[in-house]
Design a binder for these strands. Structure first.
Length: 231
DNA sequence: GCGACAG
DNA sequence: ATCTTGTCGC
């Protein structure tokens, strides 16, 4: 892999503070109320990121599936030098850059985007999905495999069962069972969509496995790319 | 001060 | 996220 787009081994003193204030500023602009009728959706994208084996580059993958067939229309992969470490609460500063780069090659503007990470279920209501949605203008949904913040009970064991996830008296996400008997996922508003609709679309696209198809396709693409390179 | 902590 | 073989269950 080439182009170390900015290699920083660890955060510059103060850089986290800047990231924090940017999150507070941006979080106020997140749209949590978008509706999305069945027929206006043609393309649904899935977002996932990985890291090169030598840990110097981020690998960003964005899948584009046609709705309602869920056939793969396009997959965009890009790499960019790691410019931010993984710090809980600041994941977007590590992944957004490479994802924006991958977004440039998409053949269609996605009507809906499902992101592998939290939306507003974040300390300052600006998880990766919300941040990415705000920067791209996409309607995004946060679909995380584990918890960042919020308290929640265990949902029933069947697909569709869910429990509200509360943080400071606000329902920031729902812990949803996407398939019978699997570990539930944390679904939250990313940008331009309501929590109810976010849950609805994730359940609609999680037709075979725990995670929705768009994310699975992106994840597989990122993994394939990772193994195919020397670094 | 201590524990928690998306990917 | 990544490191990793076999193995329990439907």
């Amino acid at each position: 892999m080439t182009d170390p787009g900015g290699t920083v081994p660890w955060i510059e003193p103060g850089s986290i503070q800047q990231a924090r204030s940017l999150q507070e500023e941006l979080s106020e602009r997140v749209d949590r109320n978008g509706e999305l009728d069945n027929d206006s959706v043609r393309f649904i994208a899935g977002v996932d990121a990985s890291i090169s084996r030598d840990k110097t580059h981020m690998i960003g993958a964005i899948s584009l599936l046609r709705w309602p067939q869920l056939t793969v229309e396009d997959v965009s992969i890009e790499t960019l030098g790691v410019a931010f470490p993984y710090v809980p609460g600041y994941l977007s500063f590590r992944e957004v850059p490479v994802l924006l780069k991958a977004a440039e090659h998409l053949t269609h503007f996605p009507d809906l985007v499902i992101v592998d990470g939290q939306g507003i279920a974040h300390p300052r209501r600006l998880g990766l999905a919300s941040h990415l949605g705000l920067v791209t203008g996409w309607r995004t949904i946060g679909c995380a495999k584990s918890r960042l913040i919020g308290e929640c009970e265990e949902p029933g064991r069947n697909k569709g069962a869910f429990k509200p996830c509360l943080h400071k008296d606000e329902e920031v996400a729902r812990l949803v069972r996407t398939r019978d008997g699997v570990k539930p996922v944390w679904i939250s508003t990313g940008h331009g969509i309501s929590l109810e609709n976010a849950v609805k679309w994730v359940l609609r696209t999680a037709i075979r496995y725990r995670l929705p198809e768009p994310i699975r396709v992106a994840h597989k693409a990122a993994g394939r790319f990772r193994r195919s390179t020397i670094a």
